[in-house]
Nucleic acid binder design. Structure first.
Lengths: 221, 221
DNA sequence: GTCTGTTTTTAGTCGAGACTAAATATTTAG
DNA sequence: CTAAATATTTAGTCTCGACTAAAAACAGAC
C-alpha cells in the first residue's frame, strides 16, 4: 500500500513529537499538522494497519522500525533540498522551508541519494540541523548549547538555530548573525539579561535573552 | 481559487491536444490522463468556472490566456527539471519524465526562474524539446523533420525525439543514437525501408522505419 | 471511591476527484 | 431523412482526508 503525502506528514509529526516528549497526544499531533484530534484518530488507525506506527487508543503512538526509517528519509530529503535551494539557487535561508516541505515528498531513495552526492554529502542544512545519512544515521553534535547559557568571556561559534521561522531568521540577518560566525561574549547586561557579542572584526552586537536562547552555539578554544 | 495538481494536469493535457489537433474531445483528454470521459466533463466545468479554459458542451475546450500561460509555465518547469536531473544528478534521459511530472507542480515562478538561471538558461531539454522562456515564448526550431523523411546522401544531426517513452529511448541508447550526433544517410534498404546511417566515426547503424520516424533531425551543410 | 475537567473517540458530514452504468446528444451511413 | 454508431453528459457511488458535535474514557482532587 503506497503512502500518501498526508500520511508522510503524519509520520514526520510523530517523529518530531516522539523525540521531544516521549509519546505524542492526538491534540499535539493535530496542532502540529494544523488539524483536529478527531482527524488524527482516524489517520493513526490507518497508519497502524499499514504498519508504520504502533498505536493504542489513549496510549499514544510510536513509530515502528519502518515508520522511523521513513520519517528519517523525509527529514533527510527535506534538509538536502534546503541545502540545494540555498547553495545552488541562492535562496535566503528564511525562505526555503515551505518549498522543501513540498519537495521532500517527491521521488524515492534514488533521487535523494543522487541529490546528496550532487551537493557533496553535506552534513548540515542551512539552519545548522544535521542531515541523516542514507542509512538514517543522524550525527549528534557534541557540546551544542543555546547561546543564552554562555558565561562572559567565552568564545563561541554559531552553529544552528532552535527557531527556524522566517521571522526569526530575518531578525538574525539584521543583526548580522550567521552560521559559522565566531564571537566572544564580552558582557551581560543586568537590566534585561541581554548579551553583548563581539565578532572577530571587533564589531559588537547586542542580543536579547529571547534571541540568544534560540541560537545554538559551540564553544571554541 | 488555488489550482490543484490534478487541475494543472488537465491544463497540460488540453495544451498538448489543442496544439496538435485543434480542439480536444473528452475522450482524448481522458485517455491522456488515464481517466474516463465522465470525469473529464466534471473537471472541464470546474476549470471553466475558474477561468482557465473556455468550454461548451459538445464543443470541446480551449485554454484562456491565463490557462495558456499556466500550461506553458508547467511545460517550462517540467523541461527545466529534466535538464537538472540529467545534467546535475546524472540520471539517464529515459528515467527523468516521471520525476519531472511530480516536480513541475512545486513552487511558482520564483523557483522556476532560479532553476533556469542555475542551469544557465538551457534552450532544450534532454529529449531535444524546446524550453519556453519566462514569458512563455517557445522558440520554434526551423527545418526540423523526422529522420524517415530524409533522402539518401543527406547529412544530418539528431536534435530530438517524437516518442520519449523509456522503451524507445533505451532502444536509441542501444543503437548509439544521441542528441547532437551527426550522420550521413548512406542507404535505404528496399525490403523494409530501413535506413543505414553512417556516423562521423565511420561506424554504420541500421535504423528501422519505425525508429526513424520517431527521431527528429536537422539537415546540415 | 467519586466527581470534575480534560482528552480521545464516535458518529455523521463534506468536498475533491475519481468511477460505472444509463441516458442523451451528435455525427455518419445508407 | 432516418437509423446506427459514437461521443458526451447525468445520476449515483466510492475513497481519501478533513471537519463538527456529542459521547465516552481517563486523570486528578477531594
Amino acid at each position: 500500500m503506497e503512502i500518501s503525502v498526508s500520511q508522510e506528514n503524519y509520520l514526520k509529526a510523530i517523529y518530531k513529537l516522539a523525540s521531544r516528549e516521549g509519546v505524542a497526544s492526538n491534540q499535539a499531533i493535530a496542532s502540529v499538522l494544523e488539524s483536529t484530534p478527531a482527524s488524527v484518530t482516524n489517520m493513526l488507525r490507518k497508519l497502524t494497519e499499514m504498519g508504520w506506527i504502533d498505536y493504542e487508543a489513549y496510549r499514544g503512538a510510536t513509530l515502528t522500525a519502518a515508520g522511523n526509517k521513513r520519517a528519517l528519509e523525509l527529514v533527510r530529503k527535506h534538509r538536502l533540498w534546503e541545502v540545494f535551494l540555498v547553495e545552488k539557487l541562492q535562496y535566503d535561508w528564511d525562505a526555503v522551508h515551505p518549498l522543501a516541505e513540498e519537495l521532500e515528498h517527491i521521488g524515492g531513495e534514488e533521487l535523494v541519494n543522487r541529490l546528496d552526492a550532487f551537493l557533496g554529502h553535506p552534513q548540515y542544512d542551512p539552519h545548522g540541523d544535521p542531515i541523516p545519512d542514507s542509512e538514517g544515521n543522524i550525527r549528534k553534535r557534541q557540546h551544542v548549547m543555546a547561546a543564552s547559557e554562555l558565561n562572559v568571556g567565552q568564545d563561541f561559534a554559531v552553529c544552528g538555530v532552535r527557531d527556524s521561522s522566517s521571522l526569526f531568521l530575518q531578525h538574525l540577518d539584521r543583526l548580522g548573525i550567521e552560521l559559522g560566525k565566531r564571537y566572544a561574549l564580552t558582557e551581560r547586561l543586568e537590566f534585561d539579561r541581554s548579551m553583548v557579542w563581539q565578532a572577530e572584526s571587533g564589531q559588537t552586537t547586542t542580543v536579547s535573552q529571547e534571541v540568544a536562547s534560540n541560537v545554538l552555539i559551540q564553544r571554541v578554544k
